[in-house]
Amino acid sequence: MARRESQLPDKIHIDMTPMIDVVFQLISFFMFSLKVISPEGDFDIRMPLGRAANAVVDDQQVPPIRLKLSAGPDGTLAGISMNGNPLADFNDLQKKVVELVGTGRGPDSLADKTEVEMDCDYGLNYSDVVRAITAVSGTVQDGQVVELIKKIKFAPPKAEK
């Protein structure tokens, strides 16, 4: 039996209009729902409500560093002191912390054992607290983060003046 010749034309015309419509709608959706956001990070803090009176005291525990941040009447930082010694600024604080704990890291390092207790005035701007946490928890050298003290806690809050 002789084979029939194809009746179809050489080029099949596909209507692209619906696909292009959908694709443009998708682009519009993604464009309008796009939101440029800045990267965010966390400072982890572990603060149980209170240690039991008969809790086992770790002999290896280094006494905590007491950091006092005082606020002026408008909430700006008025003074920093570490273990009662006044400091000029957060750079000075960082230098003192590095002097105290060194830059060695590891499970038995001094930085790992030391804890900072922050005592802040009620009205102090929170951004200054984050600056203080940044100063004690690490430093950036040549683009690399050198970790310092990770254990940070807050002293009980004071009443608003």
Binding site: L49, C120, Y126
Partner: peptide, 27 residues
């Protein structure tokens, strides 16, 4: 950043009273 530190501490205190003890301060 302009909030009062005391208010942040109050939030932490209330969370502690409810049994939460892990906190992440976001910056």
């Amino acid at each position: 950043g302009r909030a009062k530190t005391g208010e942040v501490q109050e939030i932490i205190k209330i969370c502690q009273q409810k049994g939460f003890e892990k906190f992440a301060l976001r910056a």
